[in-house]
Design a protein around this nucleic acid. Structure first.
Lengths: 215, 215
DNA sequence: ATACAACTTGATCAAACGGTCAAGTTCTGA
DNA sequence: TCAGAACTTGACCGTTTGATCAAGTTGTAT
């Protein structure tokens, strides 16, 4: 039998209980980390929101840091995936429209990950710096090259590809990160599907017209 | 003579020492609050960064909350002011170009306020909600009306004015809030003047072309 | 049925937190 | 010159923090 030669007996085998509790905790943690940031969040508040005692949280996630990184792991994949909308062979106007629509949809349906990402950036990316300098850098380089070919072929107006991405990211993610500002300023209780569609339309118009593309 | 009938003897008269120390503390606080948020920041870290003992910080700012609000007071005025670039009688293309340039310049020279604002929004605007529902709402209503007249006069393409503002804010402020992401992804040590000028050019292109304006 | 792994939790820890205290030292106006 | 205001700071307080402990209860494979 496999002996546990370390001080901590945390199990490896997964069960239904484990999956359910881990999911509850991750969901609560996403909310609290997104509002308070890493240092501001307390494991007690996360546990309270998840409806489990604090020691139970530490049973599944040894440290606050481990919990935070588990969340980031899930989220990072989602962001990378969305960008695959831009690939060779696709029509620039179509691809960009779809990419914007997809990013707006993520901001609407899953604002938590976007806010968590924003918190991490504001804090100086202390936990995911390596990821930025690795996978994200490669992805941006690859997609920038694609945009460059579009420019060279005269299919879109000349523009700095990296800045195009920065602006699209910002414009789409602001509808998650700054949603409180929008409800407050526009005096709305919630932001409905129509609102997000206006956002999508506005950003699409600016990007496509901005690049000299037809709608 | 005016008696101090409350328990706290904090002075009212301003001196050179006071001004200098308050400035040191506010500068340090801006940095720490921007990185950690309100709940995540500690007065001890702010005091350390400011180079004063913690009790001295509390001598000038009774509570962490008071320090935070003093910062927000300074910052909010700056944001309102920049928006005055858009006023009746000005040419839309000129006004929008100047507004974007000014916001990018703020992101470059004073990233702290932008990050602090972003932190406050992510946290759910617990401290400045009233300001958003008051002054900012009025300002957006006023400037939206101006944009509407431009649309009615056929001077710019039809667009939802509020969304135009949200996108411009996001696109410009991302160069302060997410600067870490940009240095990491682009493998640069710092973001120089040229970089910010590319940003300004990109956003201006997208906005002006996007609205059907000439450059 | 039973034995062991998986899970639960009240109580508790040292450290860090926001904030205070009181006893100083330095500055400034008359 | 000197008194009072302004400023400084080591020591400290009660609370909350992340994390642990140990003694449980529940789930499950045989």
């Amino acid at each position: 039998m496999a002996g546990k030669f370390k001080t901590k007996p945390k199990p490896v085998k997964a069960g239904a209980i484990r999956r359910r509790n881990v999911a509850k905790i991750l969901k609560a943690a996403e909310d609290v980390f997104a509002r308070k940031g890493f240092s501001g969040a307390s494991t007690a508040e996360i546990a309270r929101l998840a409806g489990v005692p604090k020691p139970n949280l530490h049973y599944y996630f040894r440290t606050k840091q481990a919990l935070y990184e588990a969340l980031l792991d899930r989220i990072l994949e989602m962001w990378v995936e969305a960008m695959e909308e831009l690939h060779p062979g696709v029509d620039p106007a179509d691809a960009l429209s779809r990419y914007v629509a997809r990013k707006i949809d993520l901001s609407r349906r899953l604002p938590g990950p976007s806010k968590l990402w924003a918190m991490e950036m504001l804090a100086g990316a202390p936990h995911i710096g390596a990821f930025l300098r690795g996978r994200v850098r490669e992805l941006v380089a690859e997609k920038s090259a694609l945009v460059e070919t579009w420019i060279e072929q005269g299919r879109i107006a000349p523009i700095a590809p990296a800045h195009l991405f920065f602006v699209i990211w910002a414009a789409t993610q602001t509808y998650a990160d700054f949603s409180v500002q929008m409800t407050s300023v526009l005096n709305r209780k919630t932001l409905d599907a129509d609102f997000y569609d206006e956002a999508r339309a506005t950003i699409t118009t600016l990007v496509l017209n901005g690049l000299g593309l037809k709608r």
